[in-house]
Design a protein around this nucleic acid. Structure first.
Lengths: 248, 248
DNA sequence: CGACGTATTGATTAGGCTCAAATCCTGTGG
DNA sequence: CCACAGGATTTGAGCCTAATCAATACGTCG
């Protein structure tokens, strides 16, 4: 004799059972029926670093859940200047609803795995499940908060502050064992120095110089170019140019 | 004997009948019932330039439709450095759903009129009307696009390009008679030079210098500090550091 | 008319960019 | 296992843009 709980979970597609997107991503909004129908249309992919996922001005015909890895969203000017306008981590939802053509580039920054759906399937799910759209709204609002936070960094912070802010942001997103009050962190940088400079609106040379400065000052350690250890998070935070309320 | 159309429109609150928010704003998503209930809780306000609407870290207890004027959204660092992270024009919806405390300041840049609702009324409407939430999602996605566009300006454009981009953005938002292909435009700047510099991540001196440069070069005319005429939109666009797809 | 806030213009300085060279990692093939 | 090639990173030197500091002009409002 089956308990109700068993009936429910037995309706969940096998692929989705252990998928993080079902717990913290948009799929968590779906009931077993919708989930099953969506899962039928899904396909999983592994993507190498540097591969372009969506090109600027290309038509968007699929959406994806990011299951692992880091995706960078970029915009560029006609003379080649480039700006990273967002980073996405698992289990973010990738793709811009309600727009036929993309206005940004999406590229795998690290090795990436995706769970992709055809455009039509996602649009149908959005229509039928208000809860799904609700989750999308939440993620979008969160991305807007992040973008605005980053505008402060781009517009008003100095080079040392920019690099410190970047490290802090990465630490909080990558080092999953990191609790709010953690005193130290340790992670692999998902971006090259050049990428970081495109994120911060500077040059790779400046990024490099600021990293060595942080190293010399004993705030961080770096091994093999990519592996970063932050011994004292609070000292790193001090170098971010403190967020503050209005005039004290 | 009344036609169905009459019944429907007679159900629309008098205040809302001529309100632009009902046509292009979020209220357009509501049926007469919801609109009527929401309208009962609404109140209209006139706000003077410079008045703070929402303070950073204050609790949010109301949402509003912006009926006229311009609102600037700002973030600041503890030492006073400030960045404008967004501008809102009528008929935008003001307020950050799903978050008790605001993370930004909202301030009237010009004289502003609002139609405000208590927090609870908006949240109830969101729950009951998926279409309403759908509109919010669309506005949020649009704001995210704008924020990312601006990140390119902040991170990668030169001072002359920044000022030109700003003027172009304002022209497109303020000069309502402006069609996509219009050759000239004319408008009142909603921001002071200092505000503009907070938007562009520069200084008021630099903004001033770039404006006089554009004036000298015959791209714009300025009267009384605030009134701007753009004679040739295309020449202004040329100075924005062209948006481009990926490498041609 | 006078006063205050806003804007313009000028002179100087400094932070970060550019160009250039040396060094370090990674992966490959002998 | 080691040498080598290629790219990424670090480090250095000089320059340029835009910030800073300072003074003057403009515009608005009482």
């Amino acid at each position: 004799m089956t308990v109700r709980q068993d009936i429910r979970s037995s309706g969940i597609p096998a692929l989705c059972l252990s998928c993080e997107a079902r717990h913290h991503g948009v799929c968590g909004a779906l009931d077993p029926d919708h989930l099953a129908r969506l899962a039928k249309t899904s396909s999983r992919h592994k993507i190498d670093p540097g591969v372009e996922l969506i090109g600027d001005a290309e038509t968007v015909d699929s959406y994806s859940n990011l299951l692992s890895g880091v995706v960078k969203l970029t915009k560029s000017l006609s003379d080649g200047r480039q700006q990273i306008v967002g980073l996405q981590f698992a289990p973010d939802f990738l793709g811009r609803p309600f727009r036929v053509k993309s206005t940004i580039n999406a590229e795998a920054a690290t090795a990436v795995s995706l769970c992709s759906f055809p455009r039509a399937a996602i649009e149908r799910t959005m229509k039928e499940s208000p809860e799904f759209e609700h989750r999308l709204l939440k993620q979008t609002l969160y991305e807007l908060d992040e973008a605005r936070e980053w505008m402060v960094t781009l517009g008003r912070k100095t080079a040392p502050e920019k690099v410190a802010s970047f490290l802090l942001m990465i630490a909080r997103n990558i080092d999953s064992s990191l609790e709010p009050g953690a005193r130290s962190a340790c992670f692999e940088l998902p971006l090259t120095r050049a990428d970081i400079s495109d994120f911060l609106g500077t040059t790779n040379e400046t990024v490099s110089r600021q990293l060595t400065r942080l190293r010399m000052d004993g705030v961080i350690r770096i091994e093999n170019n990519r592996h970063v250890t932050v011994d004292s998070m609070s000292r790193l935070e001090q170098r971010c140019g403190g967020r503050g309320a209005t005039a004290p």
